[in-house]
């Protein structure tokens, strides 16, 4: 621990505890699978812990600060992935176990069913709040490709959500 007092570690994890689940889901959404999400979260937590003493804005700034570190970590992983030949990974499309789909899960379910190259654009846009140019840089693709992927993804999401809404109304 490089001589760090145990109290500091405890404080760090106290602040982290309420954020863990959110951070985990953020990484999962961006990267598309749980194994990569765990790796990204661990690396982000290590980085955050090392920089903890430099956290500006006090403890209230902690959630936003660590979220940004995590998103940077996730985009680095996506950038690395962009340099290898893309393949569809079967674990990305594994259905969640019954009963796990939480409230607000409808949009997530529709998003996670998108093919990887559409899903990552949608999540980087609406969850990581990246500009289209930043998404292009992260995924190492032209800006025009980002725009057309987002356009297609939105069309598919609209159709999936319309269907889900209709099903829900029918069930009432």
């Amino acid at each position: 621990m490089r001589g760090r007092p145990a109290a500091e570690e405890e404080r760090f994890f106290e602040l982290l505890r309420p954020e863990q689940g959110k951070l985990y889901r953020t990484a999962w959404a961006i990267l598309g699978n749980e194994a990569d999400a765990r790796d990204a979260l661990q690396e982000a937590v290590i980085r955050a812990y090392r920089a903890f003493s430099q956290l500006k804005g006090g403890e209230a700034a902690f959630p936003g600060w660590i979220r940004r570190i995590l998103i940077n970590q996730c985009t680095q992983i996506l950038r690395r992935r962009a340099r290898v030949i893309p393949v569809e990974r079967p674990e990305d499309y594994r259905p969640e176990p019954a009963g796990v789909i939480p409230e607000h899960g409808e949009v997530w379910e529709a998003v996670r069913r998108l093919p990887e190259h559409y899903r990552s654009v949608v999540v980087l846009r609406f969850l990581a709040d990246l500009s289209l140019e930043d998404i292009a840089r992260t995924l190492d693709i032209p800006l025009g490709t980002v725009k057309s992927r987002l356009h297609t993804a939105l069309k598919q999401l609209r159709s999936a959500l319309t269907e889900a809404d209709a099903e829900r109304r029918g069930a009432l």
Binding site: P102, H104, V111
Partner: peptide, 15 residues
């Protein structure tokens, strides 16, 4: 809707 519900889904996450 996508931004709002994705955030809500994230916020409801448990470790």
């Amino acid at each position: 809707r996508i931004a709002r519900e994705l955030r809500a889904w994230v916020d409801a996450g448990t470790a």
